[in-house]
């Protein structure tokens, strides 16, 4: 099940914990994987770990021209692009009272506009082959909201609406477009929480633990697969039951 032999995937934000794990799992399932992110040496280390079938493709997605150039690079380097994983994103938190226009628009630009541009660039080849997978990593906060994250929550909710629209536009070409919405995942960021904060968080997670990058990567592997061919426009919530929508 869920074999990806012969497929080519592009994972943005592959320098992060979740992105790197997505890349590992897609590669393990048989795909060749293009690794994108801003830090070349981190990507090169990951490519070295994966071995054959990994392409290092650094990109700065705050540049509006970068997404097309990135897709061109992947198609030139690996011959095609079957699976786009929009994982790159960043936060710039602050209460709305104090959030600048720039803090708002920078997050929208990288977390929402860049995934759109990547999807637009990737869909041409997918349309020709009458097959493709576009998967965007959103967040639980796109559904629930979160104080201090008006920009990030708006971008992540935006990915859901965008994906539903693309799903309808591209369904006749065999391209599915879906979203994975992680809850709280163990990363260096959540490691910084103190014990009391962690305990409060656990009370809100019925399954009683934080998520791991592997929990998210498994969901992406499923949505990437042939077996998920009848799933489109969906948001798969992977959050330990913290929000049931």
């Amino acid at each position: 099940m869920f074999a990806l032999d012969g497929k080519v995937a592009l994972v943005t934000g592959a320098t992060g914990g979740i992105g790197a794990e997505i890349a590992r799992v897609l590669h393990r399932q048989g795909a060749r994987v293009a690794l994108s992110g801003t830090r070349r040496e981190v990507l090169e280390a990951l490519a070295g770990e994966l071995g054959d079938g990994a392409l290092v493709a650094p990109a700065n997605l705050s540049d509006p021209a970068a997404p097309q150039a990135l897709v061109d690079q992947v198609e030139a380097g690996l011959g095609r692009l079957d699976i786009l994983v929009n994982n790159a994103g960043f936060t710039r938190d602050g209460l709305a009272m104090r959030m600048s226009d720039k803090d708002f628009s920078d997050v929208i630009e990288v977390d929402l506009a860049a995934p759109f541009r990547l999807a637009r660039a990737a869909m041409r080849g997918m349309m020709k082959r009458r097959a493709g997978r576009i998967i965007s990593i959103a967040s639980i906060v796109g559904t629930t909201g979160n104080p201090g994250q008006a920009n990030y929550a708006a971008a992540k909710a935006g990915l859901v609406g965008m994906s539903k629209s693309l799903a309808q536009e591209l369904a006749s070409r065999g391209i599915t477009v879906n979203v994975v919405a992680p809850g709280f995942i163990e990363t260096p960021m959540t490691d910084a929480l103190n014990e009391a904060q962690k305990a409060r968080l656990m009370e809100r997670i019925p399954l009683g633990r934080m998520g791991s990058p592997a929990d998210i990567a498994a969901a992406v592997a499923y949505l990437s697969s042939e077996e998920a061919g009848w799933v489109t426009g969906a948001t798969l919530h992977v959050n330990g039951g913290m929000a049931m929508t």
């Binding site: 041409r124 349309m127 536009e169 591209l170 006749s172 070409r173």
Partner: peptide, 11 residues
């Protein structure tokens, strides 16, 4: 052709 085909043709 459908609407997507016409866009592809124009491109």
């Amino acid at each position: 052709a459908d609407s997507l085909d016409t866009v592809e043709l124009v491109m």
